[in-house]
């Protein structure tokens, strides 16, 4: 991946184009033939209301970000997805890369149905403590995704959370910000490549920061009475395909109203839906039911 590569590769591509070996030559795909698999490959959230918000679930071959303040339900959703993946039509395993310690194992067990303790076998957990940790984990995951062995194939990658990887080691100086955003793009490119090659659903959670006056361009929303944006700035916003923003507003009686907002998505309009977190998981609330 050193900058010498661009000079070498095009000539390789040019020489292969004259030969009959079509492996090297880029081949266009026909979108019409991709349509059924993109519809069937969606991962349900296990709740018809939330699935309707996302028109069927989380899309494959694409990176979805779930942003929200602490205790907004990000990790809950991830755990729920991890347990749903083997039960869904994809019948897939899940790779759970976490940076917030410790891994919420008890909650995961609590969510798993008593009749199916084997579901936990399909959740592969690894900890990442720095951006470079995550990158090397993803490179190793590549082998796992290609040769799953006895397990059902991995079709879901969860990263919880991306922001905490970048909490340390970076100043607000321009040089450090540049180094940081180059890492964002490397991680994102890796995630997207895995997502594309193996038709994985990729979910990345993100924290929020208070909005500083004058910082434009990023998603802004009100949550718990604060004006917040997803962390890591606009550079990271360029790295995800779909952004879901979980917000909360307290109504004074002690129970918070939670909302899941589609901040942007290539296939969805901006819209929102209320949800609740119960003992057995995250569920959407019908708007008419209120």
């Amino acid at each position: 991946m050193r900058p010498a590569a661009p000079a070498r590769h095009p000539s390789a591509a040019a020489s292969s184009s004259s030969s009959t070996n079509s492996q090297q030559e880029p081949r266009p795909e026909n979108p019409l033939l991709l349509l059924p698999s993109s519809r069937a490959g969606k991962l349900s959230l296990g709740c018809p209301v939330l699935d309707r918000l996302l028109s069927g679930g989380l899309p494959p071959a694409s990176v979805t970000e779930i942003a929200g303040e602490s205790a907004s339900g990000k990790t809950q959703l991830c755990l729920q997805l991890a347990l749903l993946a083997p039960l869904s039509p994809l019948s897939a395993s899940c790779l759970f890369l976490h940076s917030d310690l410790p891994f919420p194992l008890r909650r995961l067990r609590g969510l798993a149905p008593k009749s199916r303790p084997d579901l936990l076998d399909h959740v592969l957990v690894a900890a990442a403590h720095s951006p470079s940790d995550l990158i090397s984990l993803l490179s190793r995951a590549q082998r796992l995704l290609a040769h799953p062995g006895r397990l059902p194939p991995v079709r879901l990658i969860l990263v919880d959370s991306i922001a905490s990887l970048f909490r340390a080691d970076f100043d607000a100086s321009p040089a450090d910000l540049k180094r940081r955003s180059a890492l964002f793009f490397r991680i994102s490119a890796k995630l997207k490549e895995l997502a594309h090659r193996h038709r994985c659903v990729v979910v990345v959670t993100n924290q929020v920061v208070d909005v500083v006056e004058g910082e434009a361009g990023n998603t802004v929303a009100w949550s718990s009475g604060r004006r917040v944006s997803p962390a890591l700035g606009i550079a990271w916003a360029n790295c995800v395909n779909t952004r879901l923003f979980l917000t909360r507003d307290a109504d004074g009686r002690g129970c918070a109203r939670r909302r899941m907002n589609v901040a942007f998505a290539p296939h969805l309009p901006e819209r929102a839906c209320e949800f609740v977190i119960r003992r057995d998981g995250v569920f959407g609330v019908e708007p008419s039911g209120r």
């Binding site: 349509l35 993109s38 290539p266």
Partner: peptide, 10 residues
Amino acid sequence: EGSFMVERVY
């Protein structure tokens, strides 16, 4: 970037 969603194209 992987943002070309076939269902949206449809």
